[in-house]
Design a protein around this nucleic acid. Structure first.
Length: 440
RNA sequence: GUGGGCGUAGCUCAGUUGGCAGAGCGCCAGGUUGUGGUCCUGGAUGUCGAGGGUUCAAAUCCCUUCGUCCACCCCA
C-alpha cells in the first residue's frame, strides 16, 4: 500500500481491537482515580498561544504545534493558538480561572491527547494520550503519598506488577551537592550526568563530570558513593552533615512509611541517583521503571511553585503522570484478544424474509445481546453461517422459508454445532436464558 | 538535529553475477444449490515507496526524495 495513506508520522489509527484495549485501560484509570476522590477535568485540545509559550523554556516552545491565524489575518503567517503540549499548563489556567470555585485541595485527573512537534521514535509519538493526576493546594506529604499510591494502584489495575518506583527528593540532591562540595554553578549539570548512571558505566559518568569542570576527586567520590553496593547507607550517612539533605531523607522516609501499607517494599525504593531532568520539582520526585520499555513508564513529584510560574495561583502542588502509551505497549498481547463483533447473527435467506430477520435481530438486542443481520449478497446458507462465525457470533439464527412455514427459527450454536427449533416469538427469551451460561 | 539499517501481494517476508514478479498466511471460487471451522482442488493478488539516471534490459547499480526502524539527544 502506498505510504501516503499511512497516518502522519508519529500518529496512529486505532482500529477496533486496539481502540477497545485503550478504552479499557482508560476506564481502569478513571475508576482507580475516582476511588481516591479525584475528579475529572477536560480542557480544550488547543489553547491561546501565549498561554502555552514560554512556560518550559525555549526548547519546549519549539515542540508546540502552532495554529495559524485564520481569515484575513491568515496571510500574516502568524499563529495565535496552539495544540496543548501537556496537561499541566491547562491545569494552571483552570486554577487561575476558577480558583475559588474549585475544592481545596483540588484533586483532579486528566486523560486526553496532547501534541508535540517532535521527532517520533519507539514509544514516542507526536500525538499521544497523557494521563495526569495532581493535587493542588496541599503542601502535605500525605498528598504526595496519595498521588503515589493511586499511581501504583492504577498500574496494578492495568495488570502490571513488574515495575519499580524509584523515589528520591530534590532536597536530597541539593544536600548531595553540598556535602560533596560541588560548586553551585555546576549543580544542575552534575545532576544531569548523575542521572545517566543507569545507562553509562561509573567510569563514563566520572569522565563526563570531569568534562563539566568538576574536580576529579569530587567526581570520583560522588560516583563511588552512588554506585557502591551499600550506596543508600553511604548517602544517608553523608547527608547527616547537610541540613537540607537530612530534611530530604526525612521526607523520603515519611513518604515510604505512609505508602508502606499499599506499595510492597519490593516495588519502591529510595534511589539517590535518580534525577528528574525537569527543574521545577521542589520536593519528593519519583519515576516508574518497567522492563522492556525505553525510559520511564511514569513519573512525578512535588512542584510547589510551578502553577504560579505557569500563570496560575501560587499553590502547593504534587502530581504524577502515567506513561499510558508505554504501559499499553507492555499490555500488547493480553487485552487485545477481542471478543468478536456480534453475539447473534441472523441470516437473510430471501428478500421476502428480510423484515422477519430484522425483527429477530431486534429480539436479540432486546435480550441484551449484540445482534446483526447478514448484509452480504450471497443467498447461500453456508456463506451466511461463515459470516456469522467470522464475526465471533455465538449463535446463528437460521430463518428460511421452511422456518417461516412452521413459525420457528433454527438456532444454531456455533460453538457446539448443535441446533434447535425455537418458536419465533420465544427466541429472545431462549437466547437470554443461555447468554449467561458462558461469558464472552 | 547526527550516524546506521530497512521499504517487494492485505500480513510476514524470499528474490543469486542486472535477464518473464515469488513463497507462506490471509482472501475469493468450487468440491457441498439449507449448514461455518477440518480437508481437497483451482484463482486473483502488485505503481517492487516516489522521481530521475546508467543499460539492449533495473526490484537489483548510481543520484535525489519520502516513509520507517535502531543508536545518540530529549521526553511520557
Amino acid at each position: 500500500m502506498p505510504t501516503q495513506f499511512d497516518p502522519p508520522s508519529g500518529t496512529r489509527d486505532f482500529l477496533a481491537a486496539e481502540y477497545e484495549k485503550r478504552e479499557w485501560a482508560f476506564g481502569v484509570l478513571r475508576s482507580v482515580f475516582a476511588s481516591y476522590g479525584f475528579e475529572p477535568l477536560q480542557t480544550p485540545a488547543f489553547e491561546r498561544l501565549d498561554v502555552l509559550l514560554g512556560k518550559y523554556g525555549e526548547d519546549a516552545d519549539k515542540l508546540v504545534f502552532k495554529i495559524l491565524r485564520r481569515g484575513e489575518h491568515e496571510a500574516s503567517g502568524e499563529a495565535d493558538l496552539a495544540l496543548r503540549y501537556d496537561m499541566t499548563v491547562p491545569l494552571a489556567r483552570v486554577a487561575a480561572a476558577y480558583g475559588s470555585q474549585l475544592p481545596t485541595p483540588y484533586k483532579r485527573y486528566a486523560i486526553g491527547p496532547v501534541w508535540r512537534a517532535d521527532r517520533p521514535g519507539r514509544g514516542r509519538f507526536r500525538e499521544f494520550v497523557q494521563c495526569d493526576l495532581d493535587i493542588l493546594g496541599s503542601p502535605s506529604t500525605l498528598a504526595d503519598a496519595e498521588v503515589l499510591a493511586a499511581h501504583h494502584d492504577a498500574m496494578i489495575g492495568l495488570g502490571l506488577t513488574d515495575f519499580t518506583i524509584l523515589l528520591n527528593s530534590r532536597q536530597v540532591l541539593s544536600g548531595l551537592l553540598e556535602v560533596f562540595g560541588v560548586p553551585p554553578q555546576l549543580g544542575s549539570g552534575v545532576l544531569i550526568s548523575l542521572d545517566k548512571l543507569d545507562k553509562l558505566s561509573p567510569d563514563e559518568v566520572t569522565a563526563e563530570l570531569a568534562g563539566r569542570g568538576l574536580p576529579g576527586t569530587i567526581a570520583d567520590d560522588l560516583v563511588t558513593a552512588m554506585t557502591a553496593t551499600d550506596a543508600e547507607d553511604r548517602i544517608r550517612a553523608a547527608l547527616k552533615d547537610s541540613e537540607v539533605g537530612q530534611a530530604g531523607v526525612d521526607e523520603v522516609d515519611r513518604l515510604l512509611a505512609l505508602v508502606a501499607g499499599q506499595i510492597p517494599a519490593t516495588r519502591i525504593a529510595f534511589t539517590p541517583r535518580m534525577v528528574r531532568g525537569l527543574s521545577y520539582y521542589t520536593g519528593p520526585i519519583w519515576e516508574l521503571a518497567a522492563a522492556g520499555v525505553p525510559g520511564s513508564v511514569g513519573s512525578g513529584g512535588r512542584y510547589d511553585h510551578l502553577i504560579a510560574q505557569l500563570g496560575g495561583p501560587d499553590v502547593a502542588a504534587t502530581g504524577t503522570s502515567i506513561g499510558i502509551e508505554r504501559v499499553l505497549m507492555l499490555l500488547a498481547g493480553d487485552q487485545a484478544a477481542g471478543r468478536g463483533r456480534l453475539d447473534v447473527a441472523v441470516t437473510v435467506l430471501g428478500d421476502d424474509l428480510a423484515a422477519d430477520s430484522f425483527a429477530l435481530a431486534s429480539a436479540g438486542r432486546a435480550a441484551g445481546l449484540r445482534a446483526g443481520v447478514y448484509l452480504g449478497g450471497s443467498g447461500k446458507l453456508g456463506k451466511q453461517i461463515k459470516w456469522a462465525s467470522d464475526n465471533g457470533a455465538r449463535w446463528c439464527l437460521i430463518y428460511g422459508h421452511a422456518e417461516r412455514a412452521t413459525g420457528e427459527v433454527t438456532v444454531r450454536d456455533l460453538t457446539s454445532g448443535e441446533q434447535q427449533q425455537v418458536p419465533a416469538g420465544e427466541v429472545g427469551g431462549y437466547l437470554a436464558a443461555r447468554a449467561g451460561d458462558r461469558s464472552a
